[in-house]
Design a binder for these strands. Structure first.
Lengths: 330, 330
DNA sequence: CTGTTAGCGCTTTCAC
DNA sequence: GTGAAAGCGCTAACAG
């Protein structure tokens, strides 16, 4: 890296490159632009050579100010634990970076007055926002980000918003059929945060699916997706254990298993248990819980396609199907 | 929110506020600056009122261009799984946001030519970089970020760099003493990525500590921190099981437990096992593995103190001690 | 295709 | 304490 900026201590600017290449600054701008803009091949080469010689690098702040856009993608989550689905978020992050953009992580958690927080910050100017958090609806988010490039992944979309929806019903129906096939007649349902739209729909899907195959939901216990709340749920269920326990997260299913395990009850001998999410078994092989999941690769591909050309995204959004994954517990 | 920008469709600028308040743009800039700058109280109030009326919000790009700085903190990790320590990263992220800054997540993973990647991006202009990844040394990172505000958390610091060091030796020594106290004479060590400086030091600490208390390390098996590699390690160890197994991560310890469990071997009856990290037991209560950990709160506090006033950070860095946490397995 | 000219919105001299 | 003016580095519009 042999770079000697013309002015000591300062990074070379487009003007420096122009001077060295013997062209106008605008030509440099065009020559270096990723999109094809009218520049003669000869000058373009001179510019490229001069830029390399000077070690020129574009100043994204200046470009952003001029173009009113910036290669930043806001990833909006409730809580860092939302990222724990590594099979989804790690490739997503890598994909965002490979698009030449960067991810700015916004954790809305218990932050009050998110609007004030955002409006003075860079996030207000992001290229696009990926909304995993359900803190706000599509309209609010668009206003919050001063951008129409908002991809709703939280179920809270409106007619104008781009969206990817995980079709949980398909997988849940499959799960119910499977359970029924194994002779399940009664079941308990352990649910997550009631305030979430996604959870609401998920619970409704369980009810519908059970109904459809003739499984009686004899008990509903509310948790918060966590392992701990699963253990508590186990205590509530243990007295009158149904044929199966359905949990709206894998973590809760593991908690229930450990909770019931203390009474000597083990699946699949004593009851069947089903989780939801189908987390990678790497760290949880000891549980090996049957679950419902979706194709992470498809979701990441959809998101990246959106980021590449938001305008060409299907107006009706994209649906990613889920499917039942049979493991040891049910 | 009753805001009517003077020019339709455009956000109000500092000039708009100045006009409405009847002062010069420069006055508005000063009045709105967080640092105390000379403005008469009367005008300051007029400006504040006008800004509120217009719903004015500063454009961070323009400010960044003028001041050559930006309220962005780069968090540099190898892989998203580095964030799985939620007790550390969730408060950290929240703290960064509460400082009015935002976190830009840079995953260096297998990205080649990180320098090119960074130099044209906003991250080049961040306020500070928190380096958890060990992809580069302090000097390289400073060059990469065009900033001296680099906080090394990966052990790869130099004389000039700010750093926080997790003192793993203290906890590991305590662990060894504890094991010895429980009659451990021989042990196997299951290690992580050999390429990491932190891991290298960790392994050395185990060797030293065992030596000091008279535990003989009869076997070393290398893994990659993952649960899966723990299971593989179990296979290698099972033939001649020592009194104890030390693992340089909790995940590997769990893998070893499950692996040996298949042969009917269970801690603490058949052997003792110790992990490292002391991850929150929430999702892993079934294992309840003894481990070594540190005070996450102290680390976050240290990092935030750095971000607040990088200049006042202790020149010698900060040390966070670790300690042994006894649980069921050892 | 090319170069000149205006900005983008803010901060910062520097005279007053 | 105040305001005019000069940038920060880049892109877009407009003549050539």
């Amino acid at each position: 890296m042999i770079e000697k900026p013309p002015r000591a201590g300062k990074r070379p600017t487009i003007a420096d490159v122009a001077r060295l290449a013997g062209v106008a600054p605008a030509i440099v701008s065009r020559a270096l632009s990723p999109s094809r803009r009218p520049v003669s091949l000869e000058k373009k080469e001179r510019v490229l050579k001069a830029a390399a010689e000077l070690g020129y690098h574009q100043n994204p702040l200046a470009r952003g100010l001029a173009t009113k856009s910036i290669d930043l993608v806001a990833v909006i989550i409730n809580h860092l634990s939302d990222l724990s689905d590594l099979d989804l978020f790690d490739p997503l992050l890598e994909g965002i970076q490979s698009l030449g953009k960067q991810a700015i992580l916004i954790r809305v958690g218990r932050t009050k007055r998110i609007d004030d927080f955002l409006r003075n910050s860079l996030s207000y100017h992001v290229h696009a926002a990926l909304v995993f958090s359900d803190f706000a609806g599509a309209g609010e988010v668009r206003a919050l980000f001063h951008s129409d490039n908002v991809l709703m992944l939280n179920g809270r979309f409106d007619a104008e918003s781009a969206r990817i929806r995980i079709d949980e019903e398909s997988g849940i129906a499959e799960l119910a059929r499977h359970a029924r096939g194994r002779g399940v007649g009664t079941a308990a349902l352990v649910t997550g945060r009631a305030s979430s739209l996604v959870e609401e729909a998920r619970v409704a899907a369980y009810r519908t699916a059970c109904n459809a195959v003739g499984i009686r939901l004899v008990r509903e216990v509310s948790g918060d997706y966590s392992y701990g709340s699963g253990r508590e749920a186990a205590a509530a269920i243990a007295g009158a254990l149904p044929d199966a326990v359905f949990c709206t997260s894998d973590s809760m299913a593991m908690g229930v298993m450990d909770g019931l395990g203390r009474d000597g009850l083990r699946p699949p001998a004593d009851y069947l248990i089903y989780g939801f999410d189908a987390v990678d078994r790497g760290n949880f092989a000891a549980y090996d819980v049957s679950s419902v999941g979706f194709d992470r690769t498809a979701l990441v591909a959809g998101i990246l396609a959106y980021l590449k050309v938001p305008g060409e995204f299907p107006a009706t959004g994209i649906d990613i199907p889920t499917r039942f994954i049979a493991r040891a517990t049910g």
